[in-house]
Design a protein around this nucleic acid. Sequence first.
DNA 1: ACTATAACGGAACCATCATTCCGGTTGTCA
DNA 2: TGACAACCGGAATGATGGTTCCGTTATAGT
Lengths: 199, 199
Amino acid sequence: MTTSDTATGDPRPLRADAVRNRAKIVEAAKAAFSERGLETQMEDIARRAGVGVGTLYRHFPTKDALVRALIVDKMERMAEHAKAAMKDDGDPWEAFAGVLRKGAEQTVRDRALAQVFSSQPQEAYRTALEDETELAARMAWLLRRAQDAGLARPDADPADIPIVMCGLGAVIHNERNWERYLALMLDGFRNTTVERLPE
Amino acid sequence: MTTSDTATGDPRPLRADAVRNRAKIVEAAKAAFSERGLETQMEDIARRAGVGVGTLYRHFPTKDALVRALIVDKMERMAEHAKAAMKDDGDPWEAFAGVLRKGAEQTVRDRALAQVFSSQPQEAYRTALEDETELAARMAWLLRRAQDAGLARPDADPADIPIVMCGLGAVIHNERNWERYLALMLDGFRNTTVERLPE
DNA sequence: ACTATAACGGAACCATCATTCCGGTTGTCA
DNA sequence: TGACAACCGGAATGATGGTTCCGTTATAGT
């Protein structure tokens, strides 16, 4: 969450109380959205932050802008996990799978994130998000490394990853079974070129 | 879609025009919901059916009731596929996977169904739906048979199936990649007890 | 044909939210 | 310490969409 969410160059520095309030708002929004999801109302957030809606709106021109800011934040954290995994010299498969698991864990704790992953709005976010963070590129790299090591199925495609996350988002808010989902999905990603049966 | 959606015993038979209108409504609702999803407005449906909203509401007391009726319908169709698959003596794995694929195909063509599968409301529907149709029981049977034949992973659980469908619902309305999703997921379901690597 | 009644249509109603407005505060700078 | 812009709060506004109401119309039975 960098300073210029509003994307103003920064003609004048923010006034002290404004800074304070902005922090409270972001804090409250994070909590509210992750607990109650995207349907959280602006007024709830304002109340929770101890400010008026007006104030909320001065800091974020629109609900969508607020959501977006928070989501980008989360995505950046994931992107960092991915970066770390790239430096990890251990099992390439585990490096790849580990990032997905981390992402999943983060998603369970944040209903809004889950919703964004799984529903329409995503469309809107995707380009913006994946362009900003290098998440997609890094995941692709991790996947390829696992493939080169013969651990991931050769025909797996970086484009499959958003699919997995999308499904994950849906699964999460209905069941506690996301671990199950991930397990199945990851097995699907593994290298299974070893023939098993006459078919 | 049986006669008594409104669940009245049936004190008096429905009047001729009422029957006609009900049919038009169901028809319109099916089309509208599958094209535009759950956010379709009641008035759209009414217009499409060539009746007034009032009429719509006399037949279905609530939007939710209407949706539910249509969804149950779809579920019943799936349950029939499952039943057919049970009688099929071919490859047990294909029988199981085939039903999932059929379900997926049906879901791609119906946005509302996809939404129900993937979002919160499902909670509300699930019990009602799966109790009415025997879908769940049948899928469980198909899965077990595939397991007994050594074709599905031994630790797969009937409870995993709703998870798959849930993820599917989410994936579908964002990508054309549902086939990819299913492929990965199904591979996850396969028997992979053959060790591949020293681990 | 005629009436009692079931069914219609669609305007009006109401609840829910995001967003806007503006009179009142507060921080900052001289 | 005073003045002025930057900020604040929260009531009011507007849009959306499900649901209800009621005067009108079609159907079934005589």
